[in-house]
Design a protein around this nucleic acid. Structure first.
Lengths: 347, 347
DNA sequence: TTGTACGCGTTATCAA
DNA sequence: TTGATAACGCGTACAA
């Protein structure tokens, strides 16, 4: 029964099988704005397609129509729950729009970002969504800018999530305000001497969070001395290392403020390894509020970033935004205090 | 300077600009197996491409070549760290092969799986990797089978990761053996009366793990009574609910054995909420050993599943496997006991 | 409502 | 080594 054809049946095959013209078959199967097909023929065509096991060739359609139904997404690392949540959000939103996702991960090679954009450009994806942070390093993103520029010039749309990028629509996370609010909240609970695990200086997100926090602390009369501001990787290991440095240096602090949740986890790990009790001895906060960490004990105080909303806004912008950078929006980041930062007595 | 062309320059444009034929331009840029291009012209063409901002149209290439450089991946939910790890593994492996990934998530609608396969089929992806579990429900996968069959008939390759699927190459996880070994290890630490959070009966993975565990426990002289085997969703919430049921029923047990890590987390949450101390009162185990959970306290005893290897094998199989189901391989799942199951005294 | 014929951007076959 | 030219599978003006 089952034909063991090695190559796919085409629309012509279907048309022939149904005894209609190619055009009619096309209209019957994929519909048409202007034309309509008689019920009789329509059925015949659909039946033929069914029995031949016809599946339209999306590449051919893309050529003929001049547009694909896929959007490109570039994330750093799906292993990081923060990115995973966003990617998942975009994927779900895309499915609702009957769009598909081609996804690329940069991993360690941020400098490959430009090449990924170019590749997605080649695929003529409807839009490209860049997720992550920007490195304030001119060299690192040199290729990226020209890649984006070329893509945009042909009418491509680029959206950046959680990173500011001149000339493209961004969904900005208000990291400064969130960190600032966190500072207030912590002071409100009696914390005075934070240890800031600031992450890499050139990492735009980490920098914004660190800056927002430090600024507000200073305003509140508790400036953070340089000694209490440690730069390390924006990863769990970075948190571990930062914490270790602080402990080895014998610093004095009442709360560890990490610029990301996973960094906070690393710090938590190192603290418990070194006999520093959290939250008894010192408090701990993260940033991001990734849902996977809901089971960490003590429950982690952090700043909530609405990844779901971020993803949805991003896709909307990618589809309907102006595409020239004027469509940028900002989502709020709101502190949420949990058990890792219990109220402190005294001053 | 920058032309504000609205549509992309084509290879013809490049050829004209370089003063060569279309064929030569093609060979110069994308190379050719059989032909080679003179250095002089080659340079001219490449320069022209550069200055015009030419990016090859992958869709057109796919048509002409009859093959794409992308592979399709279908996962259930990127929010689940287990899937995220696998997806990330596939993505990195794909990048090494200069392949791209188009990714689809089924979310709640497992019945949509067939449609996703068909869609990926339309895109003429090189191969499709299905990640997840199979539901032993004939209706649920009805469409899926025919979708796969059609795709395979045209020469498409399908690989299943962590799920057995007749007729396609699988990377099988030896859940039974892993669960069996876990049973032994637990008994070795003095546990005798497990509470099995078995997950859904029809969920192939959950079922295999539950079966493997129960069988070995019985062999070791500690059969699990039906009362101590609770079926609930294969999610964190499922773990929470299962645990609650057990507590409400006032069951007696010395270790909670969940069929997945996230279920174990749910159970942990409910236990602490209800005043059941883990691991003091009872032990707890999961399954999967997802790396994100490294910071859960007490550290979770579980069964390690090598997701990285799973992903790599999967892609290899997708690219070079026989594609008829005879290429299936199995990866081991090995118990790793941590603090959530300390040795128990006495019987 | 249906059919004819051209174009989408590329690769590959065949001559030159 | 280079250049015409025919596919590849489909959408869609245009004509009937």
């Amino acid at each position: 029964m089952a034909r063991t054809t090695r190559s796919a049946p085409t629309l012509s095959d279907v048309a022939r099988h149904a005894g209609v013209s190619l055009a009619t078959a096309s209209r019957a199967i994929n519909g048409s704005e202007t034309r309509t097909v008689g019920e009789e023929l329509r059925r015949r065509v659909i039946d033929s397609a069914q029995s031949l096991g016809y599946a339209p060739n999306a590449n051919a359609q893309a050529m003929a129509r001049g547009a694909t139904r896929t959007i490109g997404v570039v994330v750093h690392d799906l292993t990081d729950p923060y990115f995973a949540e966003i990617a998942d959000g975009i994927a779900t939103a895309a499915t609702e729009h009957k769009l598909f996702l081609t996804l690329a991960t940069t991993g360690n090679k941020i400098e490959a970002l430009g090449d990924m954009v170019t590749a997605l450009d080649s695929m003529r994806v409807r839009a490209i969504i860049l997720v992550g942070a920007r490195w304030n390093d001119p060299d690192l993103h040199r290729g990226l800018h020209t890649s984006i520029e070329q893509y945009v010039r042909r009418g491509g749309r680029v959206v950046a999530l959680g990173m500011d990028f001149p000339g493209v629509d961004c969904v900005h996370i208000d990291n400064e305000a969130g960190a600032s609010a966190l500072a207030e909240a912590l002071v409100g609970r009696g914390y005075r001497r934070p240890l800031l695990l600031a992450g890499p200086e050139r990492h735009s997100t980490a920098a914004a969070r660190a800056a927002g926090f430090a600024a507000r602390m200073a305003e509140l009369g508790h400036p953070i001395p340089p000694t209490h501001r440690i730069g390390s990787d924006f990863t769990r290991t970075g948190g571990t290392i930062g914490m270790r440095l602080a402990i080895e240096a014998g610093l004095d602090y009442d709360v560890v403020v990490a610029t990301s949740d996973v960094m906070a986890l690393g710090a938590l790990h190192e603290a418990s390894r070194s006999g520093v009790q959290i939250p008894t001895d010192v408090g701990l906060t993260g940033f991001g509020d990734v849902s996977t960490l809901i089971d960490v004990r003590p429950s982690l105080s952090t700043v909530h970033v609405p990844t779901r909303q971020l993803a949805r806004l991003g896709l909307d912008l990618a589809l309907h935004g102006p595409g020239d950078g004027t469509g940028s929006v900002t989502v709020e980041a709101i502190p949420v205090l949990r058990d890792s930062t219990p109220p402190r007595m005294g001053a």
